[in-house]
Design a protein around this nucleic acid. Structure first.
Lengths: 226, 226
DNA sequence: ACAAAAGTGTTCTTAATACACCCATGT
DNA sequence: ACATGGGTGTATTAAGAACACTTTTGT
């Protein structure tokens, strides 16, 4: 590689993440509202340009912290997107390296505003608006990746609050995988994996018959759920 | 993003591919021998720096063609590698975007030499030397990805010659997945997928009892084999 | 009392696994 | 004739799918 070759110059790297959580049995993604042009007032995924002195994961974590105040997010690689000619105001060629992150929303406090963003909020993945920079495509790929990941027991544990009910858990699976399960078979399957304990507590989620509360065992093996 | 910020400058993108084929039932990867420093005379995966006016896939295909003469390779994304401080002679920060490619070796003619490479050859994936630029790590991830892909019937079709025998097919699976299968159950499984036809021909691979030759149906559904 | 969601067991079906003998070829 | 690898079928086991009634709570 000859560094002086013009074809090698003016390139940069965006790091972009789709941060997911579960709130009340609903899968949500973290979006930020842009303060400036381009795409002023549009919502976007969390991200920005990578510095040349930081690793990709460090850059991802820095952007997440700067834009949302979140720390200690578990990250998984999603993919690379070509941004040849996509960023209107920059005359650099960029590529986007994208990750997904999983957080337990009960443990985080998002920061609503900073220098670049007017607002930060969790959006139900079933009702995401048109995003800046064509980020919907990136989010869709992250959701596909989430489908692959969610069948692993340790991923569930990263995403869920400490205690949960079987109907809640089932709704999460059904929401992410876009299919339905038989109530009895679902419970049987989860219990057979030996990854949860019965807390002997019950909670009434919706004013109907109360559901049993379960929690993950401290140490669980990584197993395929489905 | 402020383009003038020094932290955004001096970054570049490598595109690197692990090209796989099957020869005589053995899974092989395409390596090139470097003509110049750094890592002169080391073998490396196929790749190089991405131009700022081409898409990632175009860059991958250009590098594959320049270094090996191969065209029309089916590509699959593998992952991104951070090259912060890894390329010794360049004072740019690079990242490596890596793909894997699948070719039917009976259909390609590799070009052995060009301006950057002294030699190009297929290596058994079980006996790959120490590669330039730490490419072994990239190859390992590509092999992991290949494990995920090979269970899909259409990937097999891209990789295999037109006609093949069951023992050949089984050896390929066993080589990639690193496990063994019962001969009878393996054949039963493949035939039950309804993706191959019996050609009514036989061939003697190793001077023992001849094996039946099978071929893929023209149109096959994408199914999970295992 | 009734509507709404939760809890519970058994049967059936399908897929995966285990296993042994005969056959065609080259030496 | 023998050594090597290829072809074939059945029985067992495990996993997944299908399915109905009773219980608790709020209104």
């Amino acid at each position: 590689m000859r560094v002086e070759n013009k074809l090698y110059k003016n390139q940069g790297i965006h790091v972009i993440s789709s941060i997911f959580t579960i709130e009340n049995g609903i899968v949500k993604v973290l979006l930020v509202k842009r303060r400036n042009e381009p795409f002023k007032d549009y919502w976007a995924l969390v991200g920005g340009a990578l510095y040349n002195n930081e690793s990709i994961e460090d850059g991802i974590k820095r952007e997440i912290f700067e834009k949302s105040g979140l720390e200690d997010v578990k990250l998984h690689e999603v993919g690379v997107f070509d941004e040849l000619g996509r960023t209107p105001t920059i005359n650099m060629r960029m590529i986007a390296v994208t990750y997904l992150g999983l957080v337990d929303s009960s443990k985080v406090q998002i920061i609503k505003e900073n220098i670049n963003t007017k607002d930060v909020a969790w959006f139900n993945i079933k009702s995401v608006p048109n995003l800046a920079f064509g980020h919907n495509e990136i989010l869709n790929k992250a959701l596909e990746k989430l489908k692959d990941l969610i069948v692993l027991s340790d991923i569930l544990k990263a995403l869920l609050p400490n205690e949960f009910t079987m109907p809640e858990l089932q709704k999460i699976y059904e929401g992410i995988l876009d299919k339905t399960f038989d109530r009895r078979n679902f419970r049987k399957k989860i219990l057979s994996l030996n990854i949860v304990d019965d807390t002997n507590k019950e909670v009434s989620i919706n004013g109907k018959k109360p559901s049993k509360l379960y929690k993950f065992k401290d140490k669980i093996e990584i197993k395929k759920v489905f």
